[in-house]
Write a protein that binds this DNA or RNA. Structure first.
Length: 748
DNA sequence: TTAGGGTTAG
């Protein structure tokens, strides 16, 4: 019986149920006294992944009357093979109490488990043992310890051990180089690589790969690709790992020629069976904009692997093919393919980045319903969707969700929250998120400044700009867009010029298109139209539609016909299909009573098949976001809305309000004009909010066009009459209305 | 019988 059992347990094909049967027999026949048999049983349990808790192994080992080092050794090796690393450490810790002393062979496996678990404390204990026992002079033990320190980000400790090694082989050199690479210390990695060669140790593929990945991950794409070329010249034959190390850099450089060469090599060497190679290849083609080649690689792969699918989906949406990405995603979901958090995050991100904000929120719910746990990347991918549609309730829920998940100090989450709260009108909450951040980065500073800028808070924007510099954070071109647009919102020409001039002089940042657009807006809004036009004429490159559009739109505000016509003449060929531009010019004509000219523009629009963009507004009521179109009768509560609006109009007229009909630039009767103004979507949305929320609750509305003067006046009045704070976000900025006053100071 | 390298989501 003993013999049969022993054979059965040692068989490489032994199953868990056989192990259980054997276990029962061992118990029944009281065969636990046999160390070999019991050890084999333990190893088998470990190999079949069935030892889920250390307790089981300890219970079993307690039956061993005289456990030997061999018992523990085989147990530890079995745990390591089956990736039960915590059990490795537990088993190792039971050696000493039993009077057993580890040998050198047991240390590397144990140390590796510490490394994988990032268990620095236990790793240091093993290190102490290695020093005391002298095993530290064993090069493999030292190698393992170095690796453990590197994994725990203790580069100095790793280096100390490395420097003390009398003999260093290619393995330990490669480990140090890869360690420096991973931590972004590229100079050190490069230095060691040279030092290694001068010591007469030749690199192998592993060494090259470690260096390549470090270069690529730190943005040194050119150097990574160059290093890859050198490697080829020196006669090294890249393996799958090398290829997947270098392809991300090839993609970032959009070097299609190199990419295709690597692709040919991959086919020749038969590396397409390597899942890392496939996903790196898809990623590379996606980044290079080669959708056809990417799709071909994807179609040619026999079995869809999750990493490749994720790379493919990202590649599609990177190239504007969000619908195709969603189609592939839905198809594979329906086919019950197991999708992971990367897949879900990828589609959520492509929705929120491409105007599919409602879909992004829906996917987030769906993801959790499918049992996939969102992580620290999912959250900041989703948050912008809430900001885009001013869905404050959803945004707050996701904020809470991230706190519940223990995501407190993630710089991406923090920056996304700053942006979301600002876009939902809650600038104080936005600032609080910024103040709570442990280590804000450039994106976080830009987010808080852009928030203040869109709320027209120039003083705060400039304060943050100076705080940022005091903190040692250098600005980038986006920082200046925020500062300049804040100046533009407030007509601060002097300050605007100051920051604009300091850009290249003090910060070495050359003004880009958007900075010129800000300056043109700033000057033209305050009526300095000629000065704005001079800036345009002096630009070192051709102005784009934003720049001319800014000028035209200010010409409309100041009803400047001659410059307006110049701007329109430049703008129309740049954006022939944008109805807004034609409307601006026709409005200038209309404001001057030039109905023939106005008509000519309208006819021009008609002949191009263009219609005025319908104005629409969004408002979140409870968990639902409603969209209202101007003069739209389809909303089920429209009758109530119009009734309420009528009542409000009566009250306003009593207190001296006159409808600003000069904003209805159509050749119609005065009373009809009033009717048209009543149908503006932002008013409808505000009234819908009044009807469906409790008194005193703030309302936030987004409008797809710029708010008109009349709506501005009416909603200001409503804020007073109804005692509500009302936040309106138009395409230009925020209007925070309270007690009949707007935060923009009526300048927008 | 023990030590070193890789892809995909913000």
């Amino acid at each position: 019986m003993f013999h049969v059992l022993s054979q059965c347990l040692s068989s490489p094909t032994a199953t868990l149920s056989q192990a259980r049967q054997a276990h029962a027999l061992i118990l029944k026949l009281n065969l636990f006294s046999d160390t070999h048999l019991t050890t084999t049983l333990l190893s088998l349990y470990a190999n079949t992944h069935s030892l889920s808790t250390p307790q089981l192994s300890l219970t079993l080992s307690s039956h061993l009357p005289h456990p030997t080092l061999f018992s523990f050794s085989s147990l530890i090796q079995a745990f390591a093979r089956s990736s039960h690393f915590p059990h490795v450490l537990t088993a190792f810790s039971h050696l000493a109490p039993r009077g057993l002393v580890s040998d050198a062979f047991l240390l590397p496996t144990t140390i590796k488990s510490c490394a994988i678990l990032r268990a620095l404390n236990q790793g240091q204990q093993v290190h102490a043992f290695a020093l005391a026992s002298g095993f530290v002079s064993d090069s493999i033990v030292a190698s393992s310890l170095i690796q453990m320190y590197l994994k725990c980000d203790r580069i100095v400790d790793a280096r100390k051990l490395f420097d003390r090694m009398p003999e260093r082989d290619v393995v330990v050199w490669s480990a140090m180089i890869a360690g420096y690479s991973r931590l972004g210390l590229v100079d050190e990695a490069r230095g060691l690589f040279g030092e290694m060669r001068s010591c007469g140790v030749e690199p192998n593929l592993v060494t090259w790969n470690g260096l390549l990945v470090g270069l690529g991950n730190n943005g040194l794409y050119d150097e990574a690709v160059g290093m890859f070329r050198v490697m080829l010249l020196e006669g090294f034959l890249p393996d799958g790992s090398t290829v997947s190390c270098v392809l991300p850099s090839v993609g970032c450089l959009e070097d299609v020629v190199m990419g295709s060469q690597v692709h040919c090599y991959v086919i020749k060497e038969g590396l397409l069976c390597d899942k890392f190679v496939v996903s790196a290849m898809l990623d590379m083609y996606g980044k290079c904009g080669c959708v056809k080649e990417m799709s071909r690689v994807f179609d040619e792969v026999e079995e869809v692997e999750i990493g490749s699918l994720n790379a493919f989906l990202t590649g599609l949406s990177r190239n504007g093919m969000v619908d195709s990405a969603l189609e592939v995603f839905n198809r594979l979901k329906d086919q019950k393919m197991e999708l992971n958090v990367v897949t879900w995050t990828s589609v959520i991100a492509s929705c929120s980045q491409n105007g599919k904000d409602f879909e992004a929120l829906e996917l987030f719910r769906d993801m959790q319903a499918n049992g996939v746990e969102p992580n620290a990347v999912t959250i900041p991918s989703l948050i912008p969707a809430c900001g885009n549609i001013s869905a404050l309730t959803h945004g707050k829920e996701i904020h809470c969700f991230s706190l519940r998940k223990g995501i407190f100090d993630d710089v991406y989450v923090g920056s996304a929250l700053i942006d979301m709260y600002a876009k939902c009108g809650r600038i104080q909450l936005s600032r609080r998120c910024f103040d709570n951040m442990l280590a804000p980065n450039l994106v976080s500073w830009n987010a808080v400044m852009s928030g203040y800028a869109m709320h027209g808070k120039a003083k705060e924007t400039m304060e943050m700009f100076h705080m940022m510099q005091q903190s040692g954070q250098k600005p980038d071109s986006i920082t200046f867009t925020c500062v300049l647009s804040a100046c533009a919102q407030n007509g601060l020409t002097e300050e605007g010029w100051h920051y604009y001039n300091s850009m290249s002089k003090e910060h070495g940042i050359e003004p880009k298109m958007e900075h010129y657009a800000c300056m043109v807006t700033l000057l033209s809004r305050v009526g300095k139209l000629e000065e704005a036009y001079s800036i345009i004429k002096e630009m070192p490159f051709e102005p784009d539609a934003c720049v001319w559009g800014a000028l035209l739109s200010s010409c409309r505000v100041h009803n400047n016909l001659s410059l307006g016509e110049i701007a329109a003449e430049k703008l129309f060929p740049l954006e022939p299909a944008n109805p807004g531009n034609y409307v601006l010019l026709s409005n200038i004509y209309a404001s001057k009573g030039l109905w023939d000219e106005e008509n000519r523009i309208r006819e021009m629009m008609k002949s191009k098949g263009l219609r005025k963009n319908p104005g629409y507004s969004w408002i979140e009521v409870g968990h639902k976001v409603h969209m209202l179109l101007a003069s739209d009768q389809s909303h089920p509560q429209m009758k109530d809305i119009l009734e309420k609006l009528d009542k409000l109009n009566m009250e306003m007229k009593k207190s001296g309000y006159l409808p600003k009909t000069n904003f209805v630039l159509q050749d119609v009767e005065e009373q009809d004009k009033e009717q048209i103004l009543c149908g503006h979507s932002e008013k409808l949305a505000v009234v819908l909010g009044l009807l469906n929320t409790s008194p005193g609750q703030p309302l936030q509305v987004i409008k797809n066009l710029r708010i008109c003067d009349d709506c501005h006046a009416v909603i200001k009045a409503i804020s007073k009459l109804e005692g509500r704070e009302i936040y309106i976000r138009d395409t230009n900025r925020f209007h925070h209305m309270k007690d009949g006053v707007c935060s923009c100071g009526d300048f927008w």
